[in-house]
Design a protein around this nucleic acid. Structure first.
Length: 571
RNA sequence: CGGGGUGUAGCGCAGCCUGGUAGCGCACUUGCUUUGGGAGCAAGUUGUCGGGGGUUCGAAUCCCUCCACCCCGACCA
């Protein structure tokens, strides 16, 4: 591509609304343009990368035996009423009406239409397994869109849906998609990790997320230093302490802690380690207030909490409910002296094994120390794993300890089962002649999100550093002073032509800009390889090659430049 | 959904308090010079000051209202 025939619209300053690196760089480099909150246009430069990403996804889906389809983004409400999601999906679902006042929606996902296809088209077990996929624009009316294309309302997604005759087949289809995802992210040149994930609202038997590792990621991933174990922190199990609860050594005593409502504050006030304190969190579930207890230096895991018996669908307790059930204000709560007919005590596994701990006294401005289960208050009603794991915790698989990194979720595979096929009466005739519901799996990749995540993972203070497979152009040829020197111009054009002939996606900056402008643009836009051609070098018969990550340029004889670049690309 | 903030040229911003000819930097156009790290000089172009209503001789500025966008929060007691 010639710069003069392309649309390069780089900005020195990013629009004020950009808050994360990838969004700033995408706006500054002219990849995208915001139209409305969470809604972006893709300009030529951005689209090249988006299409390349899409193409790798498509090739690997095809290779895995999935069949491409296109389903309508606009879907009739009736379909979603069949599965109950018309009401249950919540405000993220963009509902629209046509001129006849009929309800429609703009698809946030496509389980319903694809299941509708299956029930109409697939009749026999002999037609199975089948996997349909599409790459298409989705719309989810996010509460708060942010981070540019990382959490947009409108975004491009690859969604695939497998249909099998039985569970074993479904798990085989699941594994195929898992393997395809590994190939996709490997080919894209990204550092990533598949992690065990919560099956969440969609439900199902198994689920893995594919996380692109980046410090700015919103998700936390816990992984073992000694095994393949990796899980989203939402899901990672915190094992019960290996050693049993120690015997009490201190008397229980209540002391004033005026104006000190946090564990951190009390620990500082009494010069005790934070790990001896216990914090109480009050929830409301199943018409009852629950007091959850976790160690002061731990944090509550909301997902695991929802899985505790009796806590499904919990919400935070109101101040009135807290006062009525615990007889004390938030900030000074604990398990001592509670009326257990009014409140259920749920202790984290770690807390259940603590002795001589510190907690609130259920009285404003007072805490208690030296508290022991059994002696000072009844044992917890429920002991459960309700905290987030922290670095250094033992790995749940018994091998090694956990570390935590941040990631951006770019893919998710679900072994769904029969949830949608049963709800929508999607059946096939099995070998024994009976009608059976399909065993389904669903598999998503956020294609537009991959682009943002790749930038979060690969950039420096000058701009984007694309992995070769995602780069809009792989090599930039930059002539210095081409309008002054015929020799420079000729050498640059010849190299450009040579690279193209070798099948390399080359870019030549023939705009006649000053050197600083051309170099700054190449760096901002993130073209990973560049060859600078100037009179200075030509006198010695050399050009300068530099990878975007190289600290310095390498001098290469002009005649060997194309071959040199080709060799670098093969790495 | 709650709280805070911002809307002025394509982008970044000043002007608003204290009403009186709409400004600056970048970008863009033209010319000359310059050409190995976002050039210099000169001359230009670009505005429904978010929309509507009101107060006033006069409103970007004060008042009312609507809209859009951004940030924080949705709990960690």
């Amino acid at each position: 591509m010639r710069a003069s025939q392309f649309y390069i619209a780089t900005l020195k300053e990013a629009p004020a609304e950009a808050d994360v690196t990838s969004q700033k760089l995408m706006l500054r480099s002219g990849m995208i343009k915001k139209l409305s909150s969470g809604i972006y246009s893709w300009l030529p430069l951005g689209l090249v990368t988006l299409r390349k990403t899409e193409q790798i996804v498509r090739e690997e889906m095809d290779r895995a035996g999935a069949l491409e389809v296109i389903m309508p983004p606009v879907q009739p409400a009736e379909l979603w009423q069949e599965t109950g999601r018309w009401d249950k999906f919540g405000p993220q679902l963009l509902k629209i009406r046509d001129r006849h006042e009929r309800d429609f929606l703009f698809g946030p996902t496509h389980e319903e239409p694809v299941t509708d296809i299956a029930r109409k088209e697939l009749r026999s077990y002999r037609q199975l397994p089948v996997n349909f996929y599409q790459i298409q624009t989705k719309f989810r009316d996010e509460i708060r869109p942010r981070f540019g294309v990382l959490r947009a309302r409108e975004f491009s997604m690859k969604d695939a849906y497998s249909f099998d005759a039985d569970e074993a087949g479904m798990l085989r289809s699941y594994q195929k998609m898992f393997d395809a995802y590994v190939r996709i992210f490997t080919r894209l040149g990204l550092k990533f990790r598949p992690v065990a994930a919560d099956t969440g609202e969609i439900g199902g038997l198994a689920s893995h997320e594919f996380q692109v590792l980046a410090d700015s990621g919103e998700d936390q991933i816990a992984y073992s230093n000694a095994s393949e174990y990796a899980a989203n922190i939402e899901q990672a199990e915190a094992l019960a302490p290996a050693s049993p609860r120690a015997a009490p050594t201190e008397p229980m005593r209540k002391n004033p802690t005026p104006g000190t409502s946090t564990c951190e504050g009390v620990a500082r006030l009494w010069n005790e380690p934070l790990s001896r304190t216990v914090k109480a969190i009050l929830l409301y579930a199943n018409h009852r207030v629950h007091m959850l207890l976790i160690r002061g230096d731990h944090t509550l895991n909301e997902v695991k909490t929802g899985k505790v018996h009796g806590l499904k669908g919990w919400r935070w307790a109101s101040d009135e409910e807290i006062l009525a059930a615990a007889d004390g204000p938030a900030g000074y709560l604990g398990p001592v002296g509670l009326d257990r007919s009014k409140i259920t005590v749920v202790a984290d596994r770690t807390v259940a094994a603590m002795s001589d701990f510190i907690c609130g006294a259920n009285e404003k401005d007072f805490h208690i120390r030296g508290v022991n289960w059994g002696r000072d208050c009844p044992e917890p009603d429920i002991v459960a794993d309700i905290r987030n794991v922290i670095p250094g915790d033992p790995s749940p698989d018994g091998k090694g300890t956990l570390a935590i990194v941040r990631g951006i979720e770019v893919g998710h595979v679900f072994a769904l089962g029969r949830r949608y096929s049963e709800a929508m009466g999607a059946t096939f005739t099995a070998e024994d002649g009976t009608a059976k519901p399909f065993e389904m799996g669903c598999y998503g990749i956020g294609v537009t999100r991959i682009v943002g995540a790749a930038i979060e993972q690969n950039h420096d203070d000058k701009g984007i550093i694309w992995p070769d497979p995602m780069a809009p152009f792989t090599v930039a040829v930059i002539p210095m002073g081409a309008n002054k020197s015929e020799a420079v111009k000729e050498a640059a054009e010849k190299l450009y032509a040579g690279l193209l002939a070798a099948g390399i996606e080359a870019f030549i900056d023939d705009r006649g800009e000053r050197p600083g402008v051309m170099l700054a643009d190449q760096e901002l836009v993130g073209i990973p390889h560049r060859v600078v051609i100037g009179e200075r070098g030509l006198k010695e018969g050399v050009v300068e090659y530099q990878h975007r990550r190289d600290a310095e340029a390498t001098k290469v004889p002009l005649a060997q430049a194309a071959a040199f670049v080709k060799e670098r690309l093969a790495r």
